[in-house]
Amino acid sequence: MNDELAVRLKAFEGRPAAVAGRGKDPVNAPMIRHWCEAMGDNDPAYTGPDAIAPPTMLQVWTMGGLSGHTGRSGAYDELLGLLDEAGCASVVATDCEQEYLLPLRPGDEVTFDAVIESVSERKTTKLGTGYFVTTRMDVRVGRDLVGTHRFRILKYAPAARNQKNQRNQRNQRNQPNQPNQQTPRRPRPVVNRDNAGFWEGVRQHRLLIQRCTGCGTPRHPWLPGCNGCGSLDWDTVEASGDGTVYSYVVMHHPPFPAFDPPYAVALVELAEGVRMISNIIGVPYDKVRIGMPVRLEFQDCDAELVLPVFRPREAAV
């Protein structure tokens, strides 16, 4: 899977996914009854001489079943084939959007056309890495549009099971202070003119809080002006490093490269009165509590990145 593939996949957008497809069976009472049995749906609209099909069956009438699809375009097969070759052989449906314009009744013969609406960038999900493919289908009876159906699938290469254990084993093999080239790096902060001073301070292991020289109000994150008085003049104070957990969340999913969930993300209230978002380290994620006293530390993530983090006071060294 590489950029060349992404470009080739993108080229399928707008091409047909199905042309003049024809339902294998006309809308019929037995299939409606089997569906209602499975769903436990006793709506009287779906039985009797004036029966309509459950609208949510719209896609059912277009399904290929065991004998395969009819009307599927060469482009769609080619797209799926490319993804299969790239290792993305598994498929799971993620989204379905249907609009029902006219009721379907036994005897109606359904035809359909579909277009490949979009192919996503390469995405990493809990299931594995792959591409989302979205199609939009128009379903007709004769010349009447009876419904529209937008469908999104993920074509993916399954992630190895017990990925987390494998990752832990990999980490244990790495000697400390000997960063593995393969280990994904933490995302880089976006440094701009407004916040460059903050990141320069962090690099020197100093947590600098902006302070308005007009009214003395401290502020964080760094901004060009004061929310209190509007003054553009400011200086900095260095944080003492004492704080408390004001609030927190525990991140379980989705996993991102360089992060090892679950982990706690906290809003820490510094002694100086401002709050900042950071990690709580040195304590299991499920032991983090609101009001927990914490102490600032600086974490050297790699040769280029230092981050301010917080450790519970009792556990501080």
Binding site: P54, T56, A93
Partner: peptide, 10 residues
């Protein structure tokens, strides 16, 4: 997904 769709409709 079709079953989920049917159950939501029901």
């Amino acid at each position: 997904i079709l079953t989920t769709n049917g159950l939501v409709g029901r």
